[in-house]
């Protein structure tokens, strides 16, 4: 009971959003989307009322709301659109909006790299495959989603866990005042970011990547190399003489 008093509204918001998304998902037969939209908006409104609003420069706030709102909206449109090509394009817009949020957090290089890798290459490959696979128009089984309830419940349980973690008091604002004085206000508010030479410059990013996280970077690079060698080894049909 105590838990419900503390977290009831949050749970209600999550349930409403999950129901709304469930109702919005494309099904085998078309029907009105009003109910789903209403539920999703109600849940989002409660969540907005619960979550602390960012404080800072007016330009920062406006940009934050712009990017965040378009990321969420495009995300919903991505999973609810009937046409795979449109879904891929909404995904590209989600990536761009998220990159805008990265920029607001002084992570310019991360934003640019994400655009190059995701929006510029991976989604282009998706489109490539979709266009090759669907020359005769979209097939019936591509037009509605499968396991709607299971997917919604799973996603929103994960989302709730993430929110609960973010809102818990396990993250003290343990930032020494001399460090908090030099970094940007948008960064200082973020209790989870541990900045390192926080000037947002590429030099400090490089020093961090190839100094503090050298083993992780090398390990990731090796894994990617192994994966690409594996892909090259699997891809060609040997009987046809390539490789």
């Amino acid at each position: 009971m105590n838990w419900l008093q503390q977290n009831g509204w949050q749970a209600a918001a999550l349930v409403l959003m999950a129901l709304g998304i469930c109702a919005l998902m494309p099904r085998a037969r078309t029907r009105s989307r009003t109910l789903g939209l209403l539920l999703a908006f109600a849940g989002t409104a409660i969540a907005l009322w619960l979550l602390p609003t960012p404080a800072g420069l007016i330009a920062h706030s406006v940009l934050f709301w712009l990017f965040a709102a378009s990321a969420i909206l495009c995300g919903v449109l991505m999973i609810t659109s009937r046409n795979p090509v449109y879904a891929a394009l909404w995904f590209a817009l989600v990536t761009l909006a998220t990159c805008g949020l990265f920029l607001l957090q002084q992570a310019a290089f991360l934003a640019a790299a994400t655009i190059i890798v995701y929006a510029g290459a991976i989604i282009v490959t998706f489109l490539f495959v979709i266009m090759l696979a669907q020359q005769a128009g979209a097939t019936a089984y591509d037009q509605h989603s499968h396991h709607v309830v299971l997917a919604s419940v799973g996603a929103f349980v994960l989302f709730g866990a993430l929110l609960a973690t973010l809102r818990s008091d396990a993250w003290p604002a343990a930032r020494p005042p001399e460090e908090a004085a030099v970094i940007e206000p948008a960064l200082a508010q973020n209790g989870l970011s541990r900045t390192h030479g926080a000037d947002g410059k590429m030099q400090s990013l490089g020093r961090s990547l190839f100094g503090d996280y050298l083993y992780a970077v090398e390990l990731a690079g090796t894994v990617l190399l192994v994966a690409s060698i594996g892909a090259i080894a699997i891809a060609p049909r040997r009987s046809q003489g390539t490789l």
């Binding site: 310019a108 290089f109 934003a111 640019a112 790299a113 655009i115 190059i116 929006a119 510029g120 290459a121 282009v124 947002g200 410059k201 590429m202």
Partner: peptide, 15 residues
């Protein structure tokens, strides 16, 4: 500061 990386990021969207 990003300069060239920005150019590559934006032009990669031209496709």
């Amino acid at each position: 500061d990003l300069g060239l990386v920005f150019i590559f990021a934006v032009t990669s969207l031209a496709v």
